[in-house]
Every structure is written in C-alpha cells, then in structure tokens.
C-alpha cells in the first residue's frame, strides 16, 4: 500500500519488491530459519544417534542439565567471555591507533596501508598454519631466541596452560586488527578537515582534537564494529579449533566449540541443540544490552 516511489511513477507493479527479495528470502528461510527452528525443536528432545533407545520428547530436561549439572558449559561460557572481551578490546585499541597512523600523510603511505591491512584477508586455518610454524618448539621462533640466549630450547607455548591463552590471542590479533583499522579509517575520512583546522587555530593540541573531534565522530562506527566483531569472535571457531583444538585440558574451549564437540563428536544432538539455543539467547541479550548502554545512534540521528 505505502509504495511511495511506485505511486509517484505509476510504473511499478506492487509485486516487484516482493519478487526482488524472494530469492534472498527463500534462501534464508530454507537454510537459516528452518535449521534454527529445528534446533529449537531438538532442544526439547532426547536425540542421540548412539543411544537411540532414549530418543523422544524431553521437555526442559536438556536445559535443566545445562544450568545445574554441566560444569563444562560454565567453563566454556567463561572462556568465551574472556576471549571475546580480550580480543575486541585489544583489536579496537590497536585498530584505532593503526587507522590514525595510516590516515596521516607520509611517504610510502599507500604501500604501508596495503601491508598492515593484509592479514585481514587471511583465514583462521591459514592463521593457524602460520602461527604453528612460529610457535613450533623445535624450529619456531623460540629456538632462534634460545640461540640468542633468550628463553629455553623446546618452549611450547601451545601446550603450556600458562601461555596458551596469550599465544592464541596474539595469533587472532594479528589477523583481527586490520578489520577495525579498515572500518575506522573509512570513517575517519568522512571527518571534515576544516574542523581540525578550526581547532588548531583555537589552540587545541592533538590530544584534545582526538578526544573532542575524532572520538565523538567515530562513536557510532566503534559501537557497530565492536558489536559485529564481538559476535564474530564469539561464533568463529576456525582458529581455536585448528590451533589448540580447545586444549590443553579444555583450557581454550569456547561455547561454540563445546557445542560442536557435543553435537558432532559426541552425537548428542538434542543436548547440543539446547546449548545452541542458550548461546543464541545469551548473544542476543548481550548485544541488545550493549546497544542500549552505548546509546547507539541516540544523539546523532
């Protein structure tokens, strides 16, 4: 009914927008909505390929088990939180710093930008490949450092529970910072240059310019990119799956990794579905809370 453009031109059949969204809509219904609904359905079932005699309606049994009888769930949830907060904070700080840096005018800027942004396109598995070569206890960086008298031979950061977290964080930072840097740089370029000129005429130093012009301007972009990245870091399992496999001793198992292990290796699909549902609700709740607290878009639009 409220088809403003069509009314004005009179040339558009009312069905056109529906036809246009149909391919996307059907694909998403079939391969996102339907699987999601089936996850909801199975979360209320006992469904385990290896124990078919128990299959059937389970009510809220799976959920009760998650919250009262599954310490692994809480460990995985706590690790997910620690992982997401650490990664997003460090990536944001380094990403903003990097964007400010390559937004300056200097000789070699084009090539510097291309080089520092390049890990953006690197996959989780490739990141694992590269950092496994670096972390390798016998031929990795530590060997050459030990040759030079720093540290000891045979240091294996990935199998030591004290270092594995930061080893994984560093690898993920390496490819995660460029994402923020690219988005922030794009937003930096929309700040009118005369704002800074006016500010420096008024005697504002660079720090004050950053806090009074740059940061307020970047706010929406920062809120949105941290949210997207947070969700992405929560959900993405490629790197940890291949780099640590959730180990050593379950130390680096995030919630999605735990779900994947339960559903795929453990064949306990009913319970994995309940875990999925819980993870989804937690994620949605945190995201809405974050948008509310940050008053996204509130004062600009």
């Amino acid at each position: 009914m409220a088809n403003a453009v069509a009314k004005r031109t009179g040339a558009t059949p009312r069905r056109l927008p529906y036809l246009l969204i149909a391919p996307a809509g059907l694909l998403m219904l079939g391969f996102i909505a339907y699987p999601m609904l089936s996850v909801l359905y199975y979360s209320l079932q006992n469904y385990n390929v290896t124990k078919p005699w128990r299959n059937g309606y389970a009510g809220f049994e799976n959920f009760t088990r998650i919250f009262t009888d599954d310490p692994q769930f809480w460990d995985a949830l706590a690790f997910s939180g620690k992982w997401v907060v650490t990664e997003v904070l460090l990536q944001l700080v380094l990403g903003v710093a990097l964007a400010l840096l390559v937004n300056q005018t200097f000789i070699g800027r084009g090539i510097a930008r291309a080089l520092v942004f390049s890990p953006w396109a690197v996959s989780g598995v490739l990141t694992t490949t590269i950092w496994m070569l670096l972390y390798n206890p016998s031929t990795g960086i530590s060997r050459y450092l030990a040759d030079a008298g720093i540290g000891t031979y045979g240091t294996s950061v990935l199998s030591d529970t004290g270092t594995v977290f930061w080893a994984a964080v560093l690898a993920e930072l390496w490819r995660g910072v460029p994402f923020f840097a690219i988005l922030i740089l794009a937003d930096l370029q929309s700040i009118p240059g005369d704002l800074y000129e006016a500010a420096s005429v008024d005697g504002a130093g660079r720090a004050r310019q950053f806090f009074h012009i740059t940061l307020p301007h970047l706010k929406d972009a920062i809120v949105l990119s941290t949210l997207l990245r947070g969700v992405w870091e929560f959900n993405n399992v490629d790197l940890l799956y291949t780099l640590t496999g959730g180990g050593p001793a379950g130390q680096t198992t995030t919630l999605p990794l735990y779900v994947a292990n339960t559903g795929i290796n453990g064949h306990d699909f009913g319970y994995a579905s309940a875990l999925t549902t819980v993870a989804f609700v937690i994620l949605l709740f945190c995201s809405i809370l974050y948008l509310r607290l940050s008053k996204f878009g509130g004062d600009t639009k």
Binding site: M36, V39, F234, F280
Partner: peptide
C-alpha cells in the same frame, strides 16, 4: 530485522541441522 538477527546466528552451531538438510 531478519537480516540483522541472522548476524547473531553462529554458522558453527547450524552445522548439524544443515547437514541433515
């Protein structure tokens, strides 16, 4: 809304139902 909400659905958690489809 559906487009935005789907950003929160982890592909990793959809593996099993997608496999069945």
């Amino acid at each position: 809304l559906a487009l935005l909400a789907s950003q929160f659905i982890p592909g990793a958690l959809m593996l099993v139902p997608l496999f069945e489809i």
